[in-house]
Design a protein around this nucleic acid. Structure first.
Lengths: 237, 237
DNA sequence: CGGAGTTTTGATAGACCTCAATGACTGTGG
DNA sequence: CCACAGTCATTGAGGTCTATCAAAACTCCG
């Protein structure tokens, strides 16, 4: 029942039926979280690694003054806390943006698995490095692009990731997050996000209604964003 | 001759003399780079992993319009391109900010080593995850702090990292980077960095002259930055 | 039909940027 | 030893993007 994770790992490594079964064997348990609940909180020392099966989550940090910064959006196939295989405590939190169900992989079993199965170890390693590449791209986004390009880039990234896991088609996908959450990810205010979103709409680049997003002009959007489709390091790149 | 890297890894994992020797055995070759040269360029598919022995480097991405964003400062003990053990191409570049010398570890030998020696594998894994934690903190910095707090945070982070490798004492260390490079890291203009730097000086928080930085009031600086000294995940945290 | 959460709108303020020029400092060559 | 160029730090004036504060319109759901 950890299909989305397996599917994602298989886009990069060729897993034997054996590997796949071993992985699925330890991922028998699932957990569910209501929208708005923390799946993990800063300071936790979780004993399980959670793999998202369904729903959206956000990795975030809260500052002293109460503002928060979303560091990553997590979608099916993503791992919430792979770092705790080595680090001891979470240095950030993970919030369920929608109802979320996760597969729960015991930390120790997972470590054993990756020790015995180089293919799996490499696949997990790859997943982490891709996360890091996304993080770097996100950093560039915050540091060097204005609000319009920033939003465009975020949209392009989410679309590429949703497409990879089969949750987007014809340039459209469900985007179940509020403008406020988007603004927390982009380092902007929700008011400004709203205005820029309207501009993108009026310029015919996107449609966004009922939490459903359509890329009307992916070409122009990508150019505006300076989006590099290769940075997700699919198997081929 | 890869002492700084070994020293850094040993702050987290207990390596046997055997591990250490094996690691040093493959790191015999060194290379030097002039200030201003790219150590690695986007698109490269390097066959060696470089570990910085001496000098400062910067991981950066260039945008279409020529502006660039520095993603990380690299100091002795840091790895320039550990990701190429899995990914095929560099998705960013690494620039020598000062004259830099690196130890050159053949990719294949390194992979073999980590396959055979779990302790070493775990140590490298840890180093990557710490890099990721730094990246997350950096992201928060760009997204949610104003220029003053941003600079203060950067200063605190660099100080903590320099201290860990024994290159800072009594709250002071050499900071051989220009204000322009600092601005590229912080997502600001060099003009603005200059003005804010002056404010930090006039408020008695830092001294900065001749590429040498002193934290005059680490307390207040940390508070202003919202700096969490624990996020570097030293062995203890 | 409330009522909460979300999106939208308006007016104003401020942080940061842009452009441009001046200084300070360093190394180089004559 | 001085002139000169190059890099980097500093200063000024004016403009723009984004934030802030507040309120209204809309949507969804019990």
């Amino acid at each position: 029942m950890i299909i989305p994770l397996v599917a994602k790992l298989e886009t990069v490594a060729v897993l034997s039926a054996d590997d796949r079964q071993a992985l699925e064997a330890i991922g028998g348990n699932t957990r569910s979280f209501d929208k708005g609940r923390d799946i993990l909180s800063e300071g936790d020392a979780p004993t399980h690694v959670y793999a998202i099966l369904d729903g959206w989550a956000a990795r975030y940090k809260t500052l002293r003054d109460g503002t928060r910064q979303i560091i990553a959006f997590l979608i099916p196939g993503d791992l919430c806390d792979s770092e705790i295989t080595v680090l001891k405590k979470m240095d950030h939190s993970v919030l369920a943006l929608t109802p979320v169900t996760v597969a729960s992989l015991p930390r120790d079993a997972l470590m054993e698995l990756t020790r015995d199965r180089p293919k799996l170890a490499q696949a997990f390693w790859w997943a982490t490095l891709v996360d890091m590449a996304v993080l770097r791209a996100w950093l560039v986004n915050l540091g060097r692009r204005d609000a319009q390009a920033r939003i465009a880039h975020q949209v392009c990234e989410l679309h590429a990731r949703m497409k990879r896991i089969g949750l987007a088609r014809d340039g459209e996908f469900d985007l179940p997050i509020t403008q406020e959450q988007l603004s927390d990810a982009l380092g902007l205010t929700s008011v400004h996000v709203n205005r820029v979103l309207q501009r993108l709409r009026s310029e015919g680049m996107i449609r966004l209604q009922n939490r459903h997003l359509t890329l009307l002009d992916a070409e122009r959007l990508g150019a505006l964003a300076g989006f590099d489709p290769g940075y997700l390091h699919s198997a081929s790149s």
